[in-house]
Design a binder for these strands. Structure first.
Lengths: 230, 230
DNA sequence: AAGATAATTTGCGCTGGCGCAAAGAAAGAA
DNA sequence: TTCTTTCTTTGCGCCAGCGCAAATTATCTT
């Protein structure tokens, strides 16, 4: 997986970086490729690197003491991950990062980031803006989990995924996720996801396949997410 | 409610500020006092100010389209709030801020903050650190809500409140919150909170009164939060 | 002290969603 | 092709937690 320093400008936090900055980052970083199912890092590991995904797809997940998992977010190319641990000195990653498909990422030393932040105000500012958007998203998801019922939450997950990664075809939108994935993303179980999708299929909102959801009626799905339907 | 600019150094984000900076902030800000139950701002208002609580207690809450509320966080003196909206230009507050008791806060113009951030790198850096800690907290709470049952979540809320504001007396810890408050904080209903507290009282973990919870056995409560009990 | 108000408790019935288990379907391996 | 693995569906029973309603208790007024 080849890329040039300037590709890094697609990363929101690096959009204001100089060419020199980008060169320096790439020179001092390493490229890591891992296969589907493997992990870039685990929750609790010392956060010595922060990552920029170059290709593939990565999910961030948290595990509770009992071993249950929650999906926090899915990472797409040129998004940063692992930054939460890496911005603090001596911190640990608060989540694990698992590749959903064969993936390549640039691993940037946390210490390098710290050094750069000292002399480049744009960096902490842009990082701060990124963090605020994450907070807002987490707050919204928290509210949804606390107040909305499963059907709505699954609908929201599908709509969010559509915005992030949906492949638009002539007739609707294709999403490639298993029932288990969707369950972790919406805070429910794969059984319930399966039943809900089956119901939606009867109502001609989606067509569901193995590790695949095809949204035929996005507008109807929005109505479900709003709680208007039913 | 009188205070001097130097008091602002208790605010984590201002701990590295110069005396001049603090003077300038106070000179360009206004002090707002409101009574219990009133709001400093509402979700959706344009975020023209960010606040520092001087005295009292404020809760941040989000309302969904259907009108249901979720408690996001409780603010104590010398904590900042409303910053999430205020750091972005032209943004709205993502939550409402309601006084839990008569409260006074310093209202700092968002534009002033923006200006200061341009020339004072420590500001965006410290804000960024603050934001990362919020994210981690929200992620943890999200995970709890998704994977843990009500009893555990209420126990965690009580323990979190203990750490933040608990008045330690000879025999345990006093917390002043209504069943409704605790319900909103743990994502459940006041009925369930009432029943759980009644059960805990039988098991000598707490003593409950009107708008009051007295934790007699914090260690036992930790066991409940961990899911070990029962 | 009596009345008004607000917070809390608790009985009761209900249901949304969980999760086991077994069967079916799709994809991959040999 | 056949076997294996992985994902998905669905019947079934169950229960945690919800929420109404009515009673009880605490606090505040006058």
């Amino acid at each position: 997986m080849k890329f040039s320093p300037k590709d890094l400008r697609q990363v929101t936090v690096f959009q204001n970086a100089t060419d020199d900055d980008l060169d320096q980052i790439v020179r001092n970083s390493i490229t890591r490729s891992i296969e589907e199912g493997e992990f870039f890092f685990f929750q609790g590991d010392p956060a010595n690197y922060l990552y920029v995904l170059v290709s593939g797809q990565v999910k961030l997940l948290q595990t509770n003491p009992g071993g249950q998992q929650v999906n926090l977010r899915t990472i797409y190319p040129w998004q940063m991950f692992g930054a939460l641990g890496a911005v603090r000195e001596q911190a640990d990653y608060p989540a694990s990062a698992q590749a959903l498909e064969n993936s390549t990422a640039l691993a940037i030393q946390s210490t390098l980031l710290h050094e750069m932040m000292e002399t480049r105000p744009y960096l902490s500012f842009d990082l701060m803006l990124l963090m605020t958007s994450y907070i807002q998203e987490m707050q919204a998801r928290y509210r949804e989990l606390a107040t909305e019922r499963v059907e709505q939450r699954i609908a929201r997950v599908l709509l969010r995924l559509t915005a992030q990664s949906g492949q638009k075809t002539d007739e609707g939108i294709d999403l490639a996720f298993s029932r288990q994935d969707l369950a972790e993303m919406s805070g429910t179980t794969l059984y319930t996801v399966s039943r809900v999708l089956a119901d939606w299929e009867r109502r001609d909102l989606v067509r569901a396949g193995r590790e695949q959801v095809h949204i035929t009626n996005p507008h109807g799905l929005v109505r479900v997410a709003e709680g208007l339907e039913k």
